[in-house]
Design a binder for these strands. Structure first.
Lengths: 199, 199
DNA sequence: CACAACCAGTAGCGATTCGAAACCATTTTG
DNA sequence: CAAAATGGTTTCGAATCGCTACTGGTTGTG
C-alpha cells in the first residue's frame, strides 16, 4: 500500500466518520446522539459521577445543555433523580429498568459487534492506540480525561477494600471499573498491564 | 492485564468520544461539526463527487439537510457552485481561497497532529483496523462506503492515463487519490451489499 | 414528438438542540 | 452573619436537522 503523507488526515477523518455513523442510529432511532451518549455515560459511571456537571464536562458542553439532555431522558422514564445527602445541591441519576432495556437498542451495538469480531491481539492494540489518542486530544483541548477508578492515580487498596484518595472514601466493588469524573491518569502512563511502547 | 468482557463496549464508546471531541472545535470554532465535515469532504473528493447528493449519502443525512449545510458554507464564501455541463441538474462545488484557508483552522488538526506523532507501524496497524471497522459498519447500515479511486474496483490504467470504469472517463491526475461516491471495494466481499453503484 | 417516470437539487415548515446569560439553592470562606 | 463559590435549573434566541412538497433537467417508451 502507498504511504502517502496525508495518511494522518485520512485516519482522523475516518475516525470521526466511524464515530458519527455509529453514535446515532439512522435517525429512526428512539434517541438522539447526545441522549444516547448521556444514557451510556450514566450506565458506566460511578455514583459520584452521574451528575449533570460531570456529564457536561465529559460531553464538552454547557451545564445548561447537559441539564436539558438529562431532562429529556427523565421525561421518557429512562433515568430517575435523587438528591445527594452529602451535598444537597448535587443530583445523582440512575437508570431505570426502561433505561437498562433501552441500552439493548443502543445504535452503538453495531460497532460493538464488529469490534468483538476482531482478534484479541488486534483489539488490544487498537485500544492502546485509541486511548493514547484520546488522552492526547483531551490534553490539547484542556478537558479532563475520564477513566475508570482502577486506572486512576487516586486509586489504592488496603487489604480487602479499595479506596479513592480524592473522594476520601471506600469504593463500592461495582464502582471500581466505572468511569470517574476526577480521574487523573497515573504517572508514567502505562497504567496497568504495562502497555507496549513508550509514552 | 484485565480483559473484561465489556472491553468492546469501552472501545466503541471511546471511539465515538474521540470522534466527537475532535470533529468540532470547542464551540468557539467558526464552523459547526457538520460544516467542517462538508468542507473536508469537498476538499478531498473528486469533481464528480462534490455534489449535495454525494455528501448527503456520505454524511448519512437527507439531501435537503445537505443542501442547507452547503448553502451555509456558500454564504460564508468558502465554496462556489458551478453547474455540471454533462448533467445540467448537477452542481459541483469547489473550495475558494477562503475555504482553503479555513481548512488551516480545522479542529481536526489536533487529532491529526497526535496521529502524526504515532510510530509508523502503529499508525499503519491502527488504520488497518479502523478501515475494517468502517467498512463493516457501513455494510451493516447499508450505506455506501467511500474510498479513493486508486483502491476502487472501477479503477484501471491504460498506459499513461488512469481510467474509471463507472464514470467511463479518464481521471484527472489529481483526482485518483480523492474520494469517489461510486467507490466499490475491489477486494474482500465486493458484491455483498452491492448497492446501485453501477452507473 | 409527446408523454410519463425518474433524478438532482431547493424551499418551507416544524421540532429539536445547543449555547449564553440570568436565576435559585446550598456549601464554603472570611 | 455576610460574601463568595459551587451545583443545577430555567429562559431565550439562534442554528440545525429531518420531512414533505416542489422546480427543473434527464431518460425511457411508444
Amino acid at each position: 500500500m502507498l504511504n502517502q503523507p496525508q495518511t494522518p488526515d485520512r485516519i482522523a477523518e475516518l475516525l470521526v466518520h466511524v464515530g458519527r455513523m455509529s453514535g446515532s442510529g439512522d435517525a429512526g432511532s428512539e434517541l438522539t446522539a447526545a441522549q444516547w451518549t448521556c444514557l451510556r455515560f450514566f450506565a458506566r459511571s460511578n455514583s459520584s459521577t452521574r451528575t449533570p456537571s460531570a456529564f457536561a464536562s465529559f460531553h464538552a458542553t454547557t451545564r445548561g445543555t447537559a441539564s436539558q439532555i438529562i431532562k429529556s431522558l427523565e421525561s421518557r422514564g429512562l433515568v430517575t433523580r435523587t438528591r445527594s445527602r452529602r451535598d444537597r445541591r448535587s443530583m445523582c441519576f440512575d437508570l431505570t429498568a426502561r433505561g437498562q432495556a433501552m441500552l439493548g437498542q443502543d445504535p452503538l451495538r453495531d460497532l460493538i459487534g464488529v469490534i468483538n469480531d476482531l482478534g484479541t491481539a488486534e483489539r488490544e492494540r487498537f485500544l492502546t492506540t485509541l486511548s493514547r489518542l484520546a488522552s492526547a486530544v483531551a490534553m490539547q483541548r484542556n478537558v479532563p480525561s475520564f477513566g475508570s477508578c482502577q486506572d486512576c492515580g487516586h486509586f489504592g487498596t488496603s487489604g480487602d477494600t479499595a479506596y479513592c484518595a480524592c473522594m476520601a472514601a471506600e469504593l463500592m466493588p461495582e464502582d471500581i471499573a466505572k468511569l470517574c469524573a476526577s480521574f487523573t491518569p497515573a504517572l508514567g502512563a502505562p497504567s496497568k498491564g504495562e502497555r507496549n511502547g513508550a509514552s
